[in-house]
Amino acid sequence: MDHDEARLDQAENAALARQIAQQLTRPIVLVGMMGVGKSSVGRRLSHALGLPFVDADDAIEEAAQMAIPEIFETYGEAYFRDGERRVIQRLMAEGAGGRPMVIATGGGAFVNPETRALILDKGIAVWLDSDVDTLVERVGRKDNRPLLRGGNPREILARLKAEREPAYAQAPVHVMSGNQPHGRTLAMVMKGISQWL
């Protein structure tokens, strides 16, 4: 991409961001597998739209006063999912109360039927999707994924992706986030949201 094309893309993205920010009345909720880029794309999206950004995992850790791996270890996944559901419910209530925001959820949040129904009813769900190879490469950068401990990350990610895709597919906006700059993913997310609006 040459310099002029990049400048044109930036101008298009800025115009799209203004249009979305003017029409938005509900939170934008990013869903998808761990490692797909929900937090990094979410931060960029919130910046582009001039909206607050909340990472649901950070909000859970703050509410529990514990790191997510500790919660899993001490209380188990069911306890974590219940806390996650309650935190997302609180964030959705804040966002639906006329204060739009961008929320990045954990990989399993949208799989919970109650959480998914709430997000679909009160927010705009955006499914960030990626192939397993990209996910394996990205999650390998951190060692804070409780569901990947004690197993082959590729096999676990492939199984989780297959199990969760029917839930993720209910999101009205679907964007592939492969090995491309986050700026390109951001542009695709904004196009999807503007079409939904």
Rank of each mutant, 00 (worst) to 15 (best):
T134Y: 03
L24P: 06
Y79M: 02
L8A: 12
I193A: 09
A78G: 09
R99Y: 03
Q89F: 00
A17Y: 07
P52D: 15
E62Q: 15
E155Q: 15
G140M: 08
I28V: 08
D82E: 15
R138K: 11
E165I: 02
L24V: 04
A187D: 10
M34V: 08
E5A: 14
I193W: 06
E114M: 01
L160T: 13
Q65H: 14
N13G: 15
V111C: 13
A64Q: 15
A167D: 12
E61D: 05
M188L: 12
H174C: 13
A64N: 12
W196M: 03
A125T: 07
R85L: 02
E137M: 10
A104W: 13
P52K: 07
I103A: 07
R116H: 09
E5F: 03
R184M: 14
S177M: 02
Y75G: 14
M92T: 11
L118R: 05
V132C: 12
R26W: 01
T185L: 04
D82N: 13
D9G: 00
E165L: 09
V54M: 13
D133M: 10
S39M: 04
I68L: 03
D55P: 05
F72H: 06
M92F: 00
A67M: 04
P100G: 10
K191N: 13
E5T: 11
I68V: 08
Y168W: 07
P166R: 10
R44F: 03
E77Y: 08
D133I: 04
E77F: 05
L24R: 05
E73P: 01
P181W: 00
P100S: 08
V31E: 12
Q195A: 14
S46V: 02
I88E: 04
R154K: 09
D129R: 13
L186S: 07
D2P: 01
I124S: 07
E73Q: 15
G42S: 06
Q19A: 15
A125I: 07
E114N: 05
L128T: 09
I71G: 11
F110C: 03
L51C: 06
D58C: 04
A78H: 11
T74D: 06
A167T: 00
S39Y: 05
G192A: 02
V102N: 15
V54D: 13
G50L: 09
R141D: 06
E12Q: 06
Q19C: 13
D58P: 01
I103L: 07
T105G: 04
R26G: 05
R159A: 15
D58W: 04
E84F: 10
P146D: 11
L91Y: 03
R116I: 03
A104Y: 14
L197P: 01
D131W: 01
R164Y: 05
V136D: 07
